[in-house]
Design a protein around this nucleic acid. Structure first.
Lengths: 342, 342
DNA sequence: CTGAAAGCGCTTACAG
DNA sequence: CTGAAAGCGCTTACAG
């Protein structure tokens, strides 16, 4: 059995309160001599404070909970989520918080998750790109658990930290237009994720605003996966009248789209320009290197954690924030061939 | 204030014990009618059990702690660690455990880590590729906290789950020899990590066994990073007498080595064969695709978690296990040019 | 069958 | 200045 504060008190013939104050160096003053004694015995007996007991009485755990959307597999595959995790963990480290990863996730075991998130183990919650249909945020709100959301947007009162998706699409389209493209397709991401559906919506808005030509047949679901991107690209590009450029909602699908185009005998970027979103670590390693839109995932996460901890520690209400994406021009985009332009 | 078990008992005019047994559906039998009442009021008042309180009395948290080696940055960069995390989280999910990520890590804030790991928040610990100099395992052992180690090996009584590094090196060297290589260099990984130092040691053993030619100048530190690999390759390959193949202790360094070779005007694999370790997700995306040795990181992690949970739940002592690596032949290796052979 | 009570290991008002 | 005690929210022997 590990040493407890009572063991120390008994051995020293002191009260537990004195020992506690000595150990914590306050808030009640303790004579140096007494403190020395306590500390030295604590060391000798390898005393370790029990955090559960402490948390029970203080109501604080110094732990942040992370609620993933789905299987952790997707984490590893998604460079965005990984950068987020990186930012979260680094910021937590700086603020001396630990990170609790909930493994029963929203999509599958909602009931267990909804129990976990407010069971006292975390001071606050980070929802990583939750499904648009998730009601977990509502539950957290109702139960008074501080939380923030990354990469999804909900009602105004829900604090959301996300990239500006209308800007993501605008930057991509503006750049393609600048290159001379008029006929632009879109490989759509998962529509139950806000990034996927919002990018599609913005694409639609620009298309309907006659910013460029697009037809329904040039827009296909790719589900944010390589295979999905490849299938979608093949469908889009095997049509007699095809676009000269495709905007893909993430890099995975863009990679698949390149393969799809090549499988049809088309060259990238000569025959078809392809642009993704994320700036995945591998995107600069492929040939040709992928043109993409980078979202500041790391900074988003750091800001989100910062806001959440400010709410927890200083009761400051977090305010939603949108972050600017950035164009990264590489080799999968170029001007369209003259005869393809229209 | 959230509803407690006492609130329920009071409102129902029952004892807390009855409510507790009703809520947990045992171990003491409770009449169906009473149980219904309790459950329905619990639902009405949105009662959520406090896990801290429960853990205090049961001594179990249903949470596994992960102790990273260093900055989380390295996690994101390292495909091996990511696959491990993936395996850990998936296996924990299946067994209904959550995952606590300690953010104060071994290398920097050892004292805080050593406090955290035995503070009651986790039922067991996973040390992810700990430094060979770490004494955290000893501390965990002394305090009676169940733990396992991945990708590092210590004394026999420490349960370690790791790839068989002698086989990693043997497979790489055998394959290069089979291609006809006689002059082989090595880009060494971090020597404070067991994978790095063990692979170097095995390389040395084979070299001294006259399995192939190698000189000290053909072995350079690459610190497991791209830049380190590039620098090392440039040093190795700018010598008048240079090897025809380089075995790199991981894929990151192999990538850097390719760049280094190319910066010297050498072609891969025509002028120099390069082989890595890890089978990183991007390794098949580069041109030429990287020949590498895959270690079953996911399976290692799953087995490790499995063993750890068996110890926690059934008191079965975990036994160390070594896993077989596998050769993945791709485009960065070929037979050496005739005149270079010796 | 069910209630009153002890106890998990702490913190912190409350007395003296 | 310091000790005895209440209490955080549970589980579970112990009585009745």
């Amino acid at each position: 059995m590990p040493t407890t504060i009572r063991d120390l008190a008994k051995k020293l013939n002191m009260s537990v309160s004195t020992v506690s104050y000595a150990l914590n160096n306050g808030p009640r003053p303790v004579p140096d001599e007494v403190r020395e004694k306590v500390l030295s015995l604590a060391k000798e007996l390898d005393y370790r404070p029990n955090r559960l007991a402490k948390s029970m009485v203080t109501g604080r755990t110094h732990t942040l909970g992370i609620v993933p959307t789905g299987q952790f597999d997707n984490f590893v595959l998604s460079p965005f989520v990984m950068s987020c995790m990186n930012g979260i963990v680094n910021e937590c480290e700086a603020r001396k918080y630990d990170v609790l990863l909930f493994t029963r996730f929203d999509a599958k075991e909602e009931f267990e998750v909804s129990n976990s998130i407010s069971d006292g183990r975390a001071d606050g919650l980070i929802f990583l790109a939750p499904l648009m249909t998730s009601n977990l945020m509502e539950i957290a709100h109702r139960r008074g658990v501080p939380f923030i959301v990354t990469n999804s947007q909900f009602e105004p009162h829900v604090p959301c930290y996300t990239v500006d998706n209308s800007m993501v699409v605008k930057i991509a389209i503006d750049y393609l237009k600048e290159l001379g493209h008029r006929k632009i397709g879109h490989i759509i991401g998962s529509l139950d994720l806000q990034d996927g559906s919002e990018r599609r919506r913005q694409f639609e808005i620009l298309a309907q605003g006659k910013q460029f030509d697009s037809k329904p047949e040039w827009q296909r679901q790719g589900f944010f996966t390589q295979q999905g991107g490849k299938d979608a690209a093949i469908q889009i590009l095997s049509q007699p009248d095809r676009p000269t450029a495709i905007f893909c909602s993430n890099d995975e699908m863009a990679l698949g789209a390149i393969w799809g185009a090549q499988s049809l005998g088309l060259s990238v970027p000569e025959d078809i320009s392809i642009i993704g979103v994320d700036n995945a670590p591998w995107s600069q390693l492929i040939t040709p290197a992928l043109t993409t839109i980078e979202q500041p995932a790391y900074q988003i996460a750091v800001a989100a954690v910062h806001a959440l901890l400010n709410q927890i520690e200083r009761n400051e209400l977090p305010v939603s924030q949108q972050f600017r994406p950035e164009l990264v021009v590489r080799g999968t985009t170029s001007s369209p061939k003259e005869h393809m332009k229209s």
